[in-house]
């Protein structure tokens, strides 16, 4: 059965704690690049937390906004790829096929959310840190782009489990690492094609908005605005 995976991020719940950021690193074998490379803007975070300052002291406000790949229905990163490494898979996810990627970085240029990251060199782990690596996820080499996959390995594992048990996937049965860790339960993940799912219900909320909605990318991530 086909699914259309989507996410809802409630900005009224999000506290900006960045548990999602580290959870993503741990789940997806994202390498740390070190101070020198990070200062050159080469740090990789498939999900990041943006902060928007408003006002001047003492009347200051901050709004946090976690930004993973928005998994657009009409993704600007896809048509620009000369090798079809960046494409939309059958479940509606903007996938990156590392084998095909030749590192033109056109997709990174095209993405309005800057959700794509380039491997400027081979990632490395000081031994024995490599023992933390998740065997379910590829290690990307130098010269390829990488991005949020909605923890595709977890989707496949859950589907395989359900298949082995001869049943349908249940809503909330699994979630990407960021959603699973989120201490304030600001993130919800599920099937947008299932009208009963929590994520469908919430994405129809009055507070629901899309990031850069006017660009016409039709993201599958819905933000619920803060109420203050």
């Amino acid at each position: 059965m086909a699914h259309r995976w989507g996410m809802v991020i409630d900005l009224d719940r999000c506290t900006g704690c960045e548990a999602c950021v580290v959870a993503c690193h741990a789940e997806n074998n994202i390498a740390t690049v070190g101070e020198k490379q990070a200062a050159m803007g080469r740090a990789i975070h498939w999900i990041r937390v943006e902060r928007h300052w408003e006002g001047e002291f003492p009347n200051v406000r901050v709004r946090f906004q976690p930004i993973p790949c928005q998994q657009c229905d009409d993704a600007p990163c896809e048509p620009v790829c000369p090798t079809y490494a960046s494409y939309q898979n059958a479940q509606g996810l903007n996938a990156q096929i590392y084998n095909r990627c030749i590192g033109t970085r056109y997709c990174a240029n095209a993405c309005p959310y800057t959700g794509r990251y380039f491997n400027w060199f081979n990632p490395s782990w000081d031994k024995p840190l490599q023992l933390q690596l998740n065997p379910d996820v590829s290690i990307r080499e130098s010269g390829v782009m990488e991005k949020c996959t909605f923890c595709f390995q977890r989707i496949l594992a859950a589907e395989a489990n359900a298949q082995a048990e001869k049943r349908q996937l249940r809503d909330g049965e699994f979630s990407p690492a960021c959603v699973q860790s989120c201490p304030s339960e600001a993130m919800v993940f599920g099937d947008l094609d299932d009208p009963q799912s929590e994520v469908s219900r919430l994405s129809r909320s009055d507070r629901g908005v899309k990031l850069l909605g006017e660009v016409g990318t039709f993201p599958k991530v819905t933000y619920l605005t803060r109420e203050s």
């Binding site: 548990a19 580290v22 959870a23 741990a26 000081d126 490599q130 933390q132 065997p135 201490p183």
Partner: peptide, 30 residues
């Protein structure tokens, strides 16, 4: 391979913060 919150533990009910997530690197620290 990964640290998650224990869903049954009454304090964190399956949730974990960034520092907790990173605890893996204590064990595998070079």
């Amino acid at each position: 391979k990964k640290l998650e919150g224990n869903p049954e533990h009454p304090v964190n009910l399956g949730k974990l913060c960034a520092r907790g997530q990173a605890g893996l690197q204590v064990t595998y620290n070079p």
